[in-house]
């Protein structure tokens, strides 16, 4: 059984460079595919989205996701650390509950409420993505740090390590895989929500999708959807690889 899973993992690893290459190629050379789209949708006058270049849309999308994720991760991990230390321990149950309840909120609904209140556009969209992206990071940081066995902490303390040393050399390395899993969820959700950001005035790969849906141009829809789908899959596969590096015992168990 384990062998089958590993074989599948290896097959997915082989996919990652291929899909990344495909993504980059499509981002740069979507325009060259015009004859193809023209043949598929002869009724459309402009079969390739041209109001903005695809690399610009991809860049905007990436900036939305990267900026919000960076803030989410730094704030989320800090919050997770605070509530698992002695001074903040009292806040842990409430913060955990908040992260759990918050994640039942639909991300699209959160985006729709936060952005108009903060005034449409790029920055408010980042605010909404950051807020939502915090939740899985906080939750997994707490879970990851909580699963470090007390015996291990006791042993570390016994060897005379300071609290700071224990955090950096014992707790964080052991919790890292779970924390990265949280970041993975956060980033994948944000890639999806950033797509909807085009309805609240933030340009992203969702822009051609919405333009296509509004203007009845299926080709635009396909172009935006394929790019953003590939972007999400490539990110997910990269995170999967990163997570595996922190599996207890490292890659050696493969």
């Amino acid at each position: 059984m384990m062998a089958a899973l590993l074989r599948c993992e290896r097959r997915r690893d082989a996919l990652l460079p291929l899909l990344s290459l495909l993504l980059v190629a499509l981002v740069l050379f979507m325009g060259r595919l015009e004859p193809l789209f023209h043949a598929a949708f002869p009724q459309l006058e402009t079969p390739v989205y041209a109001r903005e270049s695809f690399w610009r849309l991809t860049l905007d999308h990436l900036v939305l996701v990267l900026v919000s994720s960076l803030i989410s991760v730094s704030v989320g991990v800090s919050a997770g650390l605070f509530v698992t230390r002695r001074t903040g321990r009292e806040f842990e149950p409430l913060v955990s509950a908040l992260a759990a309840i918050g994640q039942t909120f639909p991300p699209a609904a959160v985006l729709a409420i936060v952005v108009p209140l903060a005034g449409f556009g790029f920055v408010p969209t980042i605010v909404a993505l950051t807020l939502y992206g915090l939740l899985p990071v906080v939750q997994n940081t707490i879970t990851g740090l909580r699963t470090v066995p007390p015996d291990t902490l006791e042993a570390a303390r016994g060897t005379g390590m300071s609290a700071r040393q224990i955090l950096w050399r014992v707790e964080l390395p052991l919790a890292m895989r779970v924390i990265i899993a949280g970041v993975r969820v956060s980033v994948i959700i944000n890639i999806g929500t950033a797509t909807i950001g085009s309805t609240v005035g933030a340009q992203s790969l969702g822009t051609p999708i919405i333009a296509g849906l509004v203007g009845d141009n299926i080709a635009y829809v396909i172009q935006g959807a394929v790019l953003v789908g590939l972007l999400a899959i490539v990110s997910d596969l990269s995170f999967e690889r990163l997570e595996r590096r922190y599996r207890i015992g490292g890659e050696a168990t493969d």
Partner: peptide, 17 residues
């Protein structure tokens, strides 16, 4: 897992055609 990963609007839209 691939389906879970693809952004919702992209999957909705890709099924339109």
């Amino acid at each position: 897992n691939v389906f879970q990963t693809i952004p919702s609007i992209a999957l909705f839209a890709l099924l339109v055609a």
